[in-house]
């Protein structure tokens, strides 16, 4: 009995399951961060506190739309790899990577901009705001690293191993994008 070829397998590989479990624990992490946000919010009469500007709405929402849209190329890359279409997989991955890097760069710009207006040391609002948003950006950064690594490996062609890696990374990105929606809504909630 030899290895069933990757393309013919019906069951999900271990790497995919591992990522599912990892994503579950990450989602819980964000759940507790968001829970903490509301715990602090509901015991503070003015939120954000005096002197802290309300969060801007438009730009973060546009950025969010861009980020969420990258789920498509990431998923495509995974499917192309499964079909052994290396070129297409590389291209899709590159597209996703470019969009996500742009997203992260702009978000970091916004983050630093916020830091000029109010600080995490100023109030509990600032503390939870920067922690929540920062945790999200860190996840985007890790996702970018994963993709860059896979892109590098794909230069040498597709293997089962790399295919599974892409499949798992796609799961990771879908989860990050769902969490991005949740985090952004919470982040903007004082202005909504």
């Amino acid at each position: 009995m030899n290895a069933v070829p990757y393309t013919h397998r019906v069951a999900k590989p271990n790497g995919w399951w591992g990522m599912i479990v990892f994503v579950a624990t990450e989602a819980t992490l964000f759940g507790t961060l968001i829970g903490s946000y509301y715990d602090l919010r509901f015991k503070t009469p003015e939120w954000p506190p005096p002197g802290v500007p309300d969060p801007k709405v438009l730009l973060p929402l546009i950025l969010l739309a861009v980020l969420v849209s990258t789920s498509v190329p990431v998923q495509l890359a995974s499917s192309f790899a499964r079909a052994r279409r290396v070129g297409a997989a590389r291209l899709a991955l590159l597209l996703a990577l470019a969009l996500q890097c742009g997203y992260l760069a702009l978000q970091i710009h916004l983050y630093v901009d916020d830091l000029h207006r109010f600080t995490p040391q100023g109030s509990a609002y600032g503390s939870i705001y920067f922690t929540l948003v920062g945790a999200h950006h860190a996840h985007v950064f890790v996702g970018i690293l994963l993709e860059a690594w896979l892109l590098l490996r794909l230069l040498g062609g597709v293997t089962t191993y790399r295919g599974v890696g892409l499949q798992a990374t796609a799961v990771y990105w879908h989860a990050v994008n769902v969490l991005a929606i949740a985090v952004t809504i919470v982040q903007l909630s004082p202005s909504l």
Binding site: D39, P120, Y125, S127
Partner: peptide, 13 residues
Amino acid sequence: VGFHFFDVAHGGD
């Protein structure tokens, strides 16, 4: 780092 999650004086809980 001086954040305030648990101290009441700065809106913590």
